[in-house]
Deep mutational scan, measured.
Amino acid sequence: TIDEIIKALEQAVKDNKPIQVGNYTVTSADEAEKLAKKLKKEY
């Protein structure tokens, strides 16, 4: 679900690790936030 994706992003940001979500690779908190907002609009 979208919530699980967002939790995974938040965890990756805390661990400061890049995370791959679908076609996106998120490497920073800023990118994670942008991706989360984008995904919320889509779903």
Rank of each mutant, 00 (worst) to 15 (best):
K37T: 14
I6Y: 02
K7E: 10
G22F: 04
E33Y: 04
V13Q: 05
Q20K: 13
T27H: 12
N16T: 04
Q11E: 08
T27K: 06
K40L: 14
A29L: 07
D15S: 09
D15I: 04
K14F: 07
Q11T: 06
I2M: 08
D3T: 12
A8I: 12
L9Q: 01
N23K: 07
S28L: 03
E10W: 11
A12V: 11
A29I: 08
K17R: 13
G22N: 07
A32S: 02
V13S: 09
L9R: 00
S28I: 04
N16P: 03
A8S: 07
K17D: 02
P18W: 09
N23L: 04
V13K: 07
Q11N: 08
A32M: 06
P18C: 15
K38W: 12
L35R: 00
K41M: 11
V26Q: 03
Y24T: 13
L35T: 00
D15E: 13
E10F: 08
L39F: 02
A32P: 00
I2D: 02
I19N: 01
L39S: 01
Q11F: 01
E4N: 07
K7I: 07
P18S: 11
N16F: 15
A32T: 01
Y43S: 11
E42R: 09
I19Q: 03
Y43V: 12
S28A: 05
G22C: 15
P18F: 07
K34C: 15
E4F: 11
I6H: 01
E33L: 15
T27P: 06
E42C: 15
Y24N: 12
K37M: 09
K38N: 05
L9S: 00
D30E: 15
L9C: 00
K34A: 15
I6M: 07
I19H: 02
V21C: 15
K40N: 05
V21D: 06
T27A: 13
N16A: 08
E42I: 14
I2K: 03
A32Q: 01
E10T: 09
D3L: 15
E33D: 12
A8Y: 07
T25S: 09
K14R: 14
L9D: 02
E4V: 06
V26P: 11
E10V: 07
A12E: 00
T1A: 10
A32I: 07
G22D: 11
K7F: 08
E33C: 14
G22M: 04
K14C: 09
Y43P: 05
E10Q: 10
K37Q: 14
K37L: 09
E4C: 14
V26F: 03
I5S: 00
A12S: 05
A32V: 05
L9F: 01
K40T: 08
K34D: 11
I5F: 04
K37N: 14
N16W: 13
E31R: 00
E4W: 12
D30W: 10
A12P: 01
T25K: 04
I5N: 01
K7S: 08
A32H: 00
G22R: 01
A29S: 10
V13A: 14
E31Y: 02
T1C: 15
K14G: 05
K7Y: 06
V21M: 05
E10H: 06
A32R: 00
K38Q: 13
E4P: 03
E31T: 03
L9H: 00
S28T: 14
A8W: 11
Y43N: 13
L35I: 07
N23V: 05
K17Y: 15
Y24V: 15
A32N: 00
L39W: 00
I19G: 04
I2H: 05
G22K: 01
T27Y: 10
A32E: 04
I19S: 03
E42K: 10
K38H: 12
E4I: 08
I6V: 06
K17C: 06
K40Q: 09
E31V: 04
D30F: 11
A36M: 15
E42G: 05
D30P: 03
K7V: 07
I6D: 01
G22S: 02
A32L: 10
T27G: 11
T27L: 13
T25Y: 15
G22H: 06
E31K: 00
N16M: 07
P18Q: 05
K41Q: 14
I2E: 02
A29E: 05
T1S: 11
L39E: 02
I19V: 13
E33F: 06
K17I: 13
D3H: 10
A29W: 07
P18G: 13
V26H: 01
V21E: 08
E4L: 09
K14M: 09
T1V: 06
K40E: 10
E33G: 06
I2W: 12
V21K: 03
D15P: 01
E31C: 09
D30L: 11
V13W: 11
L35S: 00
S28E: 06
L35E: 02
Y43E: 09
T27E: 13
A32W: 05
E31S: 02
P18T: 05
E10A: 07
K41A: 14
I19W: 01
L35C: 13
K14H: 10
T27W: 09
P18Y: 04
K17H: 09
A8T: 06
A36P: 00
Y43G: 09
V21A: 02
A32Y: 03
K34S: 11
K14W: 03
D15W: 03
T25H: 14
E42A: 08
T1K: 10
K40D: 04
K41E: 15
Y43D: 08
V26C: 15
E10Y: 10
K40C: 14
T1F: 12
A29Q: 06
Q20D: 06
I5A: 02
E42F: 09
Y24D: 12
L39A: 01
K41G: 13
T27I: 11
E42T: 04
K37V: 10
S28F: 02
A12R: 02
I2R: 04
L35Q: 00
K7G: 06
A36G: 04
T27C: 15
K7W: 07
A8V: 08
T27R: 03
A29P: 06
K17W: 15
Q11S: 08
A8P: 00
K17L: 14
A36Y: 12
I6C: 09
A36C: 13
V21W: 06
T1N: 10
